[in-house]
């Protein structure tokens, strides 16, 4: 965020707050989140279930389920605010400028239309081309995502494809209108390891070639490590750490990130006990005072219980923590 570039970032989220009014009070599944994604960059958003990572993505594309609503902050796409746009305008932007890839490819494809129909329809809606030209583009898009014999398979229905192929179709659909930003919400969670590797590789290649900004939402640290350029770690609706992926994974500053890394089993560990973070993520209706992580944190002091954690931007650091780990001085738990 400290780097300066000439062009504005593709997506810029500033102090985003999402609220859900409920009987017990107002819940904030996303609270004061800020980040940028630049052209050709993959930002990984990682967190455990309930951390608010999907909610942030849904807020960006204007698809919050009521009664959830954006209660503060701003969202800028190519420097223009999009969080206050009327519904129909937002829908146009969603297809035109933002592509979406969800966990379950079946829900993003219409089972009653052939994939060719769906692709050409999207292309015609957002690009000014003729019908036959659109079909050619659709075939090219399918070839690009690695669907063999695209010309003969374009008139097939979604159920005639396997899970991995379906996710490729979804990617083709998300990219065919040449968006600036792609939001991929757990795109490989439902897939097998070998297919997951194919999809990740495809996503990386296409984004690099087309210069698309990608927000990759996932709970899998391994996927983030391999695919993302920078990573944003979320906890209880807040951004707790944001930085280049290798730095965050290898030398985490926030105690939660460090704990998350240490509790992931990996080869070097052997049969040794995993380091575990005690307890579980608090429910949104029972957030502790101060820093929401303090009850599980072994570095917590009185200040953490009293005062809310510093915001990422304010302290100029990578981690929203009063007492961040300093890997230079002490041994980082691994």
């Amino acid at each position: 965020m400290t780097q300066t570039t000439d062009a504005p970032p593709v997506l810029s989220v500033r102090d985003l707050v999402v609220e859900i009014p409920t009987r017990a009070g107002i819940l904030r599944p996303t609270d004061g989140v800020s980040y940028d994604i630049r052209r050709g960059e993959i930002l990984g958003v990682v967190g455990e279930s309930g951390a608010g990572k999907s909610m942030t993505g849904n807020a960006v594309i204007g698809l919050l389920d009521p009664p959830a609503r954006i209660a503060g902050g701003e969202i800028l796409l190519n420097g223009q605010r999009i969080d206050r746009l009327p519904r129909d305008k937002m829908r146009h932007i969603r297809g035109d400028k933002i592509g979406m890839i969800f966990q379950d490819p079946l829900t993003s494809l219409n089972p009653l239309l052939t994939i060719g129909d769906q692709l050409t329809e999207t292309i015609l809606e957002h690009l000014d081309v003729s019908q036959s030209k659109a079909r050619e583009r659709a075939i090219a898009a399918l070839e690009e995502v690695g669907i063999p014999a695209a010309r003969s398979r374009i008139d097939s229905y979604p159920h005639e494809f396997s899970g991995g192929m379906r996710q490729r179709v979804v990617i083709a659909l998300a990219l065919c209108a040449e968006p600036d930003l792609v939001i991929a919400d757990e795109p490989t969670t439902a897939l097998d390891v070998s297919v997951q590797a194919q999809i990740i590789a495809l996503l990386k290649r296409l984004c690099r070639e087309k210069g698309v900004a990608v927000m990759l939402v996932t709970h899998d640290m391994g996927v983030i490590a391999e695919a993302a350029d920078r990573v944003a770690v979320m906890y209880a609706g807040r951004l707790v750490e944001l930085g280049p992926v290798q730095e965050v994974v290898e030398t985490a500053r926030h105690p939660y990130t460090a704990g998350l890394m240490a509790s992931t089993p990996r080869a070097s560990l052997g049969h040794r006990r995993l380091r575990q973070i005690p307890g579980a993520m608090p429910r949104l209706n029972a957030l502790p005072t101060g820093c929401p992580f303090h009850p599980r944190c072994d570095r917590a002091e009185e200040k953490c219980r009293q005062e809310p954690a510093p915001s990422l931007g304010a302290c100029g650091g990578r981690a929203a923590c009063w007492f961040p780990l300093d890997p230079g001085k002490e041994e980082n738990a691994a």
């Binding site: 097998d192 590789a201 490590a225 994974v249 992931t264």
Partner: peptide, 17 residues
């Protein structure tokens, strides 16, 4: 399998399903 220490790894993904 995705690895935590394979930053920006470029692999030839496995073929087929």
């Amino acid at each position: 399998a995705p690895r935590m220490d394979a930053f920006g790894r470029e692999v030839n993904p496995p073929q087929g399903e």
